[in-house]
Design a binder for these strands. Structure first.
Length: 699
DNA sequence: CATACATGAATTTTT
DNA sequence: TTCATGTATG
């Protein structure tokens, strides 16, 4: 954060130096929490802990990467490299790769992504439509996040739909076990199961980490809580409770995916000697913005007392606008950006006097589809922008195809990967053959690959089909053998290039795509992907939090980790563009100038059509929506515009728009302090002069 | 009956 | 944007 001072404030110092016991840091928005975490890591190293004994856990690879980067700046590259900085999920992978056999998982298990899970569920549930499968996926994931298995789920299922979901879950579990595959939720729940049941493994992992730091603690779910608790509860009382949880109950916005504030409530109960340290000084926003935020969040019941303040002046008043529909709102957004840029930003943002860049702006909204209008208007106005959470490189079909092949090499029993690979590109094995193979493998409880060479299967089908299957099986075996012994970037690249030709992928791309140009662009993606893997095989330095060793790796080793490592290739390069983002995706980020759009009843707080029928949004839901508003407000450093719609589209017709109750809750009338314009101008001029005087001279 | 095209609707997201 | 549903055509 640009404005964080060099010296820690008293609360931050306290957080950094409380090493002997459990510590909860309530880090308000913009209070410099990453700084505290990194400083604390440095302090722990000072006391003699080895880097590998310090675990820092985050939710996203991006956060892990940033943390390692920041730590590097403070403690040097060598120490930073060995720190156990990882996401919850990559820590889970690490535990399972080492000890998974103790919970009946073979070493080379594969990890299913959302797509694969959908496929298995469609099959397990006999559903043809994605909607149903998606519903199941969601329900099952929520159950798993609460630590329930299918039997437990069946016991608590409250309606017919959930009963069915529990049955599907049962079959889903059986299939994953047969495939030796795990889903993302298992990456947390299986390590937990391991530590719960296996005293030896538990002691082993407890001994590995002497201090555990958890970022965004308010986003943890029940299973993650238990895993953490076990990790920091060794038998030796002197070593128990060595952890630092950093989070903010007011920014808990992921309840809908299983995160529970209970984890914050339970912490003081489970750890009576817990030290709770609130960080209340904000280094981001002006007074007017912080007051609006504080007023809104005051509407929620308090878990811990906390009130943000800052040393910055009052700044610009929070601006409220009403628009005549979505198009109009988008036009106002364009005007907002152009207006501030014309001013050069000097008046608008006292602290960043000088050029106002496009990247100083963000437009935040409740739901993704609301971005469309803004994209259109920004394009017409020639304003460059990026939409957060666009399709990832790894979501592209061609990348998923190749990933399926790689996964199959890692674990031939990975049936979803088998199915994708065997049909991509088409190799004369159709659904009739695959159907027979599937039925056979289910009957004998084998994976598809394991069933492939069976003699009794061969008796059931034509010679051509059998030949095709055997040919495929031999190809996979051969590629696997090569992958196992190839290391180093150049060899890996050559090998992979050879493969995509061998399996006919290049031809397949150019034949299946109707435009030459589209095919060429997809082929480029393939080449990029190959290069990406090859670099990893070469042991190039990496700091993504997902890989621990820094040596040359075989192609097979790299392949094992790809589903967890998200692209470094799409690491957001710093571009001068306006950000369009959902409120959820904006958490943790900040901009000088922010516009919150569509702040209407029904949208924020959100109300589904089902809820539209019933009277009110439930209390806990409303509170989470309020926190979402709070998160949105606190993204802004200097300028905040809150926009609502007088009219908004609802299906075919336009309905009247009601401004969100959260707008009134900001209490702008009583909270806004407007500086005397003349005084203000004077102050800014003086500031500017001082800055210019202090700046090193550049020609 | 199946496929192609158009029309309409749309929580929030990571691993 | 994507995804699903409905209509029209072969």
């Amino acid at each position: 954060m640009a404005n964080t001072p060099d010296i820690l404030n008293p609360a931050q110092l306290q957080a950094v130096h409380h090493l002997s016991g459990p510590c909860l840091v309530l880090a308000g928005a913009g209070s410099g929490k990453t700084r505290v975490i990194v400083q604390k890591i440095a302090r722990l190293l000072q006391t003699g802990l080895a880097p590998r004994e310090i675990a820092a856990i985050t939710f996203t690879n991006k956060a892990a990467q940033e943390m390692r980067e920041r730590a590097k700046g403070l403690v040097g590259g060598r120490a930073a490299k060995d720190l156990a900085v990882s996401t919850f999920h990559s820590l889970g992978v690490r535990i399972l790769r080492e000890d998974g056999t103790r919970v009946g998982l073979k070493q080379k298990f594969s990890i299913l992504d959302a797509d694969d899970v959908m496929g298995v569920l469609r099959e397990a549930g006999g559903a043809t439509d994605n909607k149903q499968a998606r519903q199941w996926q969601w329900t099952i994931s929520l159950w798993k996040n609460q630590g329930l298995d299918s039997d437990a789920a069946a016991a608590i299922a409250k309606d017919a739909d959930e009963q069915v979901a529990a049955q599907v879950m049962k079959r889903y579990e059986e299939r994953l076990a047969a495939y030796q595959a795990v889903d993302f939720d298992d990456l947390i729940s299986l390590p937990l199961k391991l530590l719960q049941r296996d005293a030896e493994a538990r002691a082993n992992w407890q001994a590995k980490f002497r201090h555990v730091l958890v970022d965004e603690y308010q986003d943890t779910n029940a299973v993650q809580y238990e895993l953490l608790k076990l990790l920091v509860s060794p038998d030796d009382p002197a070593r128990r409770g060595r952890f630092t949880a950093v989070g903010d109950d007011d920014q808990s916005i992921y309840g809908w995916r299983g995160a529970t504030i209970d984890n914050l409530r339970r912490l003081p109960q489970d750890w009576p000697d817990l030290k709770v340290i609130p960080l209340e000084q904000n280094y981001r926003s002006t007074g007017n913005i912080l007051r609006a935020a504080n007023h809104v969040i005051a509407g929620n019941p308090k878990l811990f007392e906390k009130k943000l303040w800052s040393e910055f002046g009052d700044g610009d008043p929070v601006r409220l606008i009403e628009c005549d529909g979505e198009e109009h709102e988008a036009e106002r957004a364009v005007a907002f950006i152009q207006g501030l840029r014309a001013q050069g930003g000097a008046l608008a943002d006292d602290r960043t006097t000088g050029q106002t860049k496009f990247s100083d702006f963000a437009i935040l909204y409740r739901a993704n589809h609301l971005a469309r209008v803004f994209e259109k208007k920004l394009r017409t106005a020639n304003i460059p922008y990026k939409v957060s959470g666009g399709t990832s490189f790894f979501d592209r079909a061609e990348i998923k195809d190749l990933c399926a092949w790689l996964r199959l090499l890692v674990n031939p029993d990975d049936d979803p990967a088998f199915l994708r690979a065997v049909t991509t590109p088409r190799r004369g094995i159709g659904h009739t053959t695959l159907g027979k193979l599937g039925a056979f493998s289910a009957q004998w409880k084998l994976s598809l690959f394991a069933a492939l060479f069976s003699k009794s299967l061969a008796a059931q089908m034509g010679a051509k089909a059998v030949h095709g299957l055997h040919e495929f099986g031999r190809l996979v075996n051969e590629l696997q053998a090569q992958a196992e012994r190839t290391t180093g970037a150049d060899d890996a690249r050559a090998l992979l290039l050879g493969w995509v030709k061998d399996i006919g992928y290049e031809n397949y791309l150019f034949e299946s795509e109707d435009s030459e140009k589209a095919a060429a662009s997809r082929w480029t993606n393939v080449l990029d992907f190959i290069d990406w893997i090859a670099r990893r095989c070469g042991g190039e330095k990496r700091n993504d939090g997902g890989v621990y060793e820094d040596e040359k790796q075989t192609v097979l080793q790299v392949a094992q980790t790809i589903s967890v490592i998200i692209s470094l290739a799409e690491r957001d390069e710093e571009q001068d563009v306006v950000t369009l983002s959902t409120l959820h995706a904006s958490k943790g980020l900040e901009w000088p100038h922010v516009m919150l759009v569509g702040v209407n009843e029904g949208l924020l707080p959100f109300k589904s059509d089902a809820e539209e029928m019933s009277a009110e949004v439930s209390k806990t839901r409303l509170e989470e929506e309020r926190r979402l508003m709070y998160v949105g407000i606190t993204r802004a450093r200097s300028t905040l515009v809150v926009s609502s719609l007088r009219r908004r589209k609802k299906g075919r017709d336009t309905v009247q728009g009601v401004p969100s109750r959260f707008i009134a809750e900001m209490k702008l009338h009583e909270a806004t302090v407007q500086e005397n314009p003349r005084e203000r101008l004077k102050r800014i001029r003086a500031d500017l002069a001082a800055k210019l005087a202090a700046a090193p001279h550049v020609d």
